[in-house]
Amino acid sequence: MSRTSVIELQDVLLVTIQGELTDRDAMALQEELTSSVASSSARGVLIDVSGLDIVDSFLARTLHDIAAASALLAADTVVVGMRPEVAITLVELGLTLPGLGTALTVADGMDKLNGSARPR
């Protein structure tokens, strides 16, 4: 059972995923998100995966497809909040998510979309 929600923050779409994501859910999310990007003419997509314990190869591919489709619609995609164990598993599987932006937190991801490193 999973809940995904898409929130519009100005010109950025924030996607949060809670619980496990089945393949069907992932495909539904991809379709919903692509149409949202088109209808809202968003400039960026932030996908928060901090609620995910497991990211399998299908979900990794889906993330890649979302990024590619959004890029066609002139939106950058950034995946945020990946857990260490998920990152290690993905790397061991050889899924390095090339071409996908990454950030540690939603705030960092927003900065990345705004094209400025946040001075601390």
Partner: peptide, 11 residues
Amino acid sequence: KTAVAARLMGA
């Protein structure tokens, strides 16, 4: 691998 995993976490 470590470098890629760190990149996946945004570092």
